[in-house]
């Protein structure tokens, strides 16, 4: 079976972003970019399913600016077989990404789509569920364990109260949580090999789907900052402060 893995290019998780002075967004110039960490987990899972003989091909897809190619090359270096870049001149919001992915799914006919549960820039946590809805496929979000066999997949999900296990017929959509796996580091030979793997570019506007943003950002501001408190000398002083100053005991 074929697995499709959408990967997003985002600000590296180590970067603490700054809000632009004109409040139009966050400063992205000269900021380190990387693959969304949940998408690395998604690629890793797909590659493991291929290594286990369950999957036959892993296709990575990224939607956005031409620089998303780097993200796709990173996915190819982990072990994806080929990549699709969908370019767009407009800002892509989750619903538009889901529509693009639906069009790609219709072309590629994968049995499984594995996405990240959330992109760490917009923190939306929407695209996987939206894609599943548009395709009328079952979904298992926040996966910490995936057992796929012919025609079926069993997924353990991280939920607020603990864990939940679902069984789904294929085709289906899965979104990854942190505990699903630990992505491998791409080795130098694999990075070199990735440069030769096929990467196809598609214009988003050619897919015949509505990409128009639905949400308008009116302003982006810094959150109120906490003022740093004090260091206490010992436990006795801590307890005294909590009782008499903060009055939380």
């Amino acid at each position: 079976m074929k697995i499709l893995v959408p990967v997003k290019r985002v600000v590296d998780y180590n970067v603490k972003v700054r809000v632009k002075a004109d409040q139009s967004g966050v400063e992205l110039a000269n900021v380190k970019m990387a693959m969304n960490p949940f998408d690395e987990i998604a690629i890793e899972e797909a590659v493991r399913l291929k290594e286990a003989g369950v999957a036959s091909e892993v296709v990575a897809v990224s939607c956005g600016v031409p620089a998303c190619q780097e993200t796709l090359r990173a996915a190819l270096a982990i072990g994806a077989d080929r990549a699709v870049l969908v370019t767009s001149v407009v800002e892509l919001q989750p619903l538009a990404v889901a529509k693009i992915l639906k069009a790609i799914v219709e072309k590629e006919a994968p049995s499984l789509v594995i996405l990240g549960k959330q992109a760490i820039d917009d923190d939306a946590n929407q695209v996987g569920q939206m894609l599943a809805a548009l395709l009328d496929w079952p979904q298992a979000t926040f996966a910490s364990k995936v057992e796929a066999s012919d025609g079926q997949v069993r997924v353990t999900r991280e939920i607020d109260g603990g864990l939940e296990t679902l069984a789904m017929p294929l085709p289906a959509v899965i979104t990854t949580d942190l505990r699903l796996n630990e992505p491998r580091y791409a080795t130098l030979p694999n990075i070199m090999k990735a440069k030769k793997k096929p990467l196809e570019t598609v214009a988003g506007e050619s897919l015949g789907v509505d990409l128009a943003p639905r949400l308008t950002t009116l302003k982006v501001v810094e959150p109120p900052s906490r003022k740093a408190g004090i260091l206490v000398a010992d436990v006795a002083q801590l307890v005294d402060k909590l009782k008499n100053e903060a009055q939380v005991l």
């Binding site: 619903l95 939306a124 569920q129 939206m130 894609l131 809805a133 607020d160």
Partner: peptide, 20 residues
């Protein structure tokens, strides 16, 4: 995790955005 699982499906089927 309950709301996040369900509402984006609702939004997509209604062809509207979700604000998370």
């Amino acid at each position: 995790t309950f709301g996040k699982n369900v509402t984006p499906r609702v939004a997509a089927l209604l062809d509207v955005a979700q604000v998370s």
